[in-house]
Measured scan of single mutants.
Amino acid sequence: MAEIKEKICDYLFNVSDSSALNLAKNIGLTKARDINAVLIDMERQGDVYRQGTTPPIWHLTDK
């Protein structure tokens, strides 16, 4: 899980924002549900936040 978090942070640092599906595909996974639990956990920790569009767009925080 730590490896996936690191990949998410690296990708969002370079791209600035992404949907869960696009993010999953760009870090080597196939479906948004493969990454949603990790994104929600990271959101609780304050590492990422989502804009409430459908589907949500994920961003890194300034943390």
Rank of each mutant, 00 (worst) to 15 (best):
A2H: 10
A2V: 09
A2W: 10
E3C: 01
E3Y: 08
E3M: 03
I4A: 07
I4K: 10
I4P: 03
K5D: 07
K5V: 02
K5L: 03
E6A: 11
E6V: 03
E6G: 09
E6N: 06
E6M: 09
E6Q: 12
K7Y: 01
K7G: 01
K7A: 07
K7H: 03
I8H: 01
C9F: 14
D10W: 08
D10K: 13
D10N: 14
D10H: 13
Y11H: 12
Y11N: 06
Y11K: 09
L12T: 00
F13G: 15
F13R: 15
N14F: 06
N14K: 15
N14D: 08
V15G: 07
S16M: 06
S18G: 05
A20Y: 00
A20C: 04
L21Q: 14
L21E: 15
N22M: 04
N22V: 10
N22S: 08
N22Q: 14
N22K: 06
L23A: 07
L23N: 00
A24T: 08
K25A: 10
K25P: 00
N26A: 14
N26W: 08
N26E: 14
N26V: 13
G28L: 00
G28T: 02
G28Q: 03
G28Y: 00
L29E: 13
T30F: 09
T30H: 09
K31S: 15
K31G: 12
K31L: 04
A32F: 11
R33Y: 14
R33K: 13
R33L: 12
R33F: 14
R33H: 14
I35W: 00
I35E: 00
I35V: 12
I35S: 07
N36V: 06
N36R: 06
A37C: 06
A37P: 11
V38G: 11
V38L: 09
V38F: 00
L39T: 05
I40R: 12
I40E: 15
D41F: 00
M42N: 06
M42D: 03
M42Y: 00
E43Y: 02
R44P: 04
Q45F: 02
Q45S: 13
Q45E: 13
G46L: 00
G46P: 01
D47V: 15
D47H: 11
V48Q: 01
V48Y: 01
V48M: 01
Y49A: 15
Y49M: 13
Y49E: 15
Y49S: 14
R50V: 06
R50G: 05
Q51R: 13
Q51W: 06
G52Y: 01
G52H: 09
G52S: 06
G52P: 05
T53V: 00
T53R: 15
T53A: 12
T54K: 12
T54I: 06
P55R: 02
P55S: 08
P56S: 03
I57E: 09
I57Q: 10
I57V: 11
I57C: 03
W58Q: 10
W58M: 07
W58S: 09
H59C: 14
L60S: 05
L60M: 08
L60D: 07
L60N: 06
L60W: 01
L60T: 03
T61S: 12
D62I: 02
K63R: 13
K63F: 09
K63D: 10
